[in-house]
């Protein structure tokens, strides 16, 4: 509560973004959106390749958002946001990989 900001203007201090980095981020995210769109609309690749491509683009998009807009790189120490992010990714991986593992062994039932 001590950290509340009553005065709107200094709420944006220390975010360390520059016009340049925002523009680059914006371009990256547009390109990463357009590539899968073009590939899908024009049937450029087969099904597996398309899926892989979409997944890869999605992961890159995630990284771009984090770096250019969420400023994950500029966080001061201790880097709680980064830690939370890594923990979240570990849990996510566990959920997906764990479920696939458990459920494939379970195919007898379905």
């Amino acid at each position: 509560m001590e950290k509340h900001n009553t005065h709107g203007h200094d709420a944006h201090e220390s975010h360390g973004g520059s016009m340049k980095s925002y523009v680059i981020g914006f371009l990256f995210s547009i390109v990463l959106t357009i590539i899968p769109l073009v590939v899908v609309l024009n049937d450029l690749l087969n099904k597996t390749a398309t899926t892989v491509l979409i997944l890869v683009m999605a992961v890159l998009q995630f990284a771009v958002q984090l770096i250019f807009f969420m400023h994950i790189k500029d966080e001061k120490k201790p880097r709680f946001n980064l830690m939370a992010l890594i923990f979240g990714l570990v849990i996510l991986l566990t959920i997906v990989a764990g479920s696939i593992w458990i459920m494939t062994y379970n195919t007898v039932a379905s």
């Binding site: 849990i91 566990t94 764990g98 458990i102 062994y105 379970n106 039932a109």
Partner: peptide, 17 residues
């Protein structure tokens, strides 16, 4: 976060799981 399947050992996920 890594122990959840002990609640359904009997589900039949096999010995490894």
């Amino acid at each position: 976060f890594f122990t959840w399947a002990h609640h359904f050992f009997t589900m039949g996920s096999g010995a490894n799981v």
